[in-house]
Write a protein that binds this DNA or RNA. Structure first.
Lengths: 125, 125
DNA sequence: GTCGTTGCAAAGCGTTTGCAGCCTA
DNA sequence: TAGGCTGCAAACGCTTTGCAACGAC
């Protein structure tokens, strides 16, 4: 039976409050605002548990450490700001990605990552 | 001044012969057919050097170890077969990926990965 | 009081670095 | 022969695991 510990609660709230996918270190930092002695092992253990239970979804970007966000959002892609290294959701998907696929290949799924500069970083200049 | 060692030659030939992006362990295995005592550190050092000199390009897939292929191919995306785990090039890019981007965000670059079944795996069933 | 959970530290694992010896030019 | 290159092993950074103590129910 799962117990509602302070640590677990702080981690869930961190994800719920975030408007973007979070890395393990980002979650650790956010949750430590509530639970000062929170250990990194607890973060990893709970993220895995939340993935298994379907509460979180993995956001893996090419060449980047995986990030995590609440599961169940409608289909969307991700924008990676090369300046601040944060990741944002980009709603919708109107692209015809199956075009140009070699004969005999079957498309099941896709992953689109956009790279550029977010508004905050553009404003900061 | 760069020297043409047996190790470096074996690594270059492995990439030239491959028709798909190779991981570090794949290159190590292929090059060891020529140079039995090849060390993994030499593989990493040479891959980095070949990237710096622009001879190789990184192919990073979400949630996967990076792979490398010859640099200079025209813009293309990658198809990852979930059955045989091989990666294939998909030529062309006709998608309007900037659509739907939040205000203030600037798009510099993008990365598209398609997942599915390749022809070989489809035929095998 | 039980036993799931936590924090710490040690262990793993893939990648990088230090160094003495090797080998190409 | 000089000095770039290599193999080995140790160092590194991130993630996982072992274990005794903690605390939710």
């Amino acid at each position: 039976m799962e117990r509602n510990t302070r640590q677990r609660g702080a981690l869930r709230r961190a994800f719920q409050r975030a408007d973007r996918p979070l890395s393990t270190s980002e979650v650790l930092e956010l949750a430590r605002a509530e639970v000062g002695r929170l250990g990194i092992a607890t973060v990893y253990r709970n993220i895995r548990a939340m993935l298994d239970e379907g509460w979180l979804a993995t956001v893996s970007l090419p060449g980047e450490a995986p990030r995590y966000e609440l599961h169940g959002k409608p289909h969307h892609h991700h924008f990676h700001c090369r300046s601040c290294d944060r990741v944002f959701d980009v709603p919708g998907c109107t692209h015809d990605l199956g075009a140009g696929l070699p004969d005999g290949f079957t498309l099941h799924d896709h992953e689109v990552v956009l790279f550029g500069t977010c508004r905050d970083c553009a404003d900061a200049r």
